[in-house]
């Protein structure tokens, strides 16, 4: 394949990776930003979204699009409720101590993973995309649904941005993020804000899982990879900065796509990983984060 089309494909794939990253990282960034909590189980919420999409598809008759729409509603709600329960039962009692929450969410990760293995099984199951549309370019074909994922990621981030800046709930969350004590003094129920934030973050992860499962498969171990990448995106983007998260997702996704053109795949992965680590070493607060 000539260089031009090759680059085009690499960029398209990079954009899809960016969209995946941005979707998976948005919820983590929110939780990180507002609560200062490192949620190691974030990837499992994403996995639960994908698995629930599969379950909904198995239960809802009719065209795949209908089941997909149902999953877009059901999965985030269920996962959000689970996260709210985890917050009330565990995280709140830990007083959101950073180290204790890391350990607790590692415990949560094991529990969710094993419960999924027991209930859902070890197989990777496909979920049909809501529509079957393929683009044929002169040099190669491309999945229409992948382009839809890019669009959906943009919409989700836009909606989240609007929620945070244009609604009262968003204002309260931002106030809590800036200063928990003052927020409490102004009569904000910080406990409820935290529970809501944690549930919203988990719901976003589940939404990402539903959107992405048609181009991957639902598998009980699928949460590990997005977790790692979302962490990277969130840190590089700067704590709690939605704009930073988006830009970091674009930078990482596209550079991953383009680097893989020039090196053997595993070497490209090594270089990309080290590159991101170096960014962090020399910009410890991320590209867009405020200096702490």
């Amino acid at each position: 394949m000539a260089f031009g089309p090759f680059l085009l494909l690499a960029l398209m794939e990079g954009l899809v990776t960016s969209a995946t990253l941005a979707l998976a990282a948005a919820g983590l960034s929110l939780v990180f930003g507002v609560m200062r909590v490192v949620n190691v189980a974030h990837g499992e919420f994403y996995m639960l979204g994908a698995v629930l999409a599969w379950a909904v598809a198995a239960l809802v008759p009719g065209p795949p699009a209908l089941a997909f729409l149902a999953a877009l509603v059901v999965a985030p709600l269920l996962v959000g409720a689970l996260a709210a329960a985890a917050d009330g039962l565990i995280l709140k009692r830990l007083n959101y101590d950073p180290e204790a929450t890391i350990v607790a969410t590692i415990g949560l990760l094991y529990m969710i993973q094993q419960a999924t293995l027991s209930l859902y099984g070890p197989n990777a199951n496909p979920v049909q995309a809501p529509f079957d549309w393929r683009i044929q370019l002169p040099w190669f074909g491309y999945s229409g649904y992948k382009l839809f994922v890019i669009l959906a990621a943009g919409l989700v981030l836009l909606a989240l941005w609007a929620f945070m800046t244009r609604t009262k709930a968003g204002l309260i969350m931002r106030a809590t993020q800036v200063d928990r004590t003052t927020a409490r003094a102004f009569g904000i129920n910080v406990d409820r804000v935290y529970m809501g934030t944690f549930a919203l973050g988990a719901g976003l992860a589940a939404l990402a899982g539903v959107l992405i499962v048609p181009i991957q498969q639902a598998h009980y171990l699928m949460g590990g990879d997005p977790l790692l990448l979302s962490f990277i995106v969130v840190i590089i983007g700067g704590l709690g900065s939605l704009r930073g998260t988006l830009i970091a997702a674009l930078v990482i996704g596209l550079s991953d796509g383009v680097i893989s053109m020039f090196f053997t795949p595993t070497l490209a992965k090594i270089l990309a990983t080290l590159l991101v680590a170096m960014v962090l070493v020399f910009r410890p607060h991320g590209l867009f984060g405020a200096k702490a």
Partner: peptide
């Protein structure tokens, strides 16, 4: 074409298949 074990998407490697 060796695919890294951590990979979840593959399209970007297909252009390496020669005409």
């Amino acid at each position: 074409i060796a695919i890294p074990p951590t990979e979840t998407t593959f399209t970007r490697y297909f252009p390496q298949i020669p005409a």
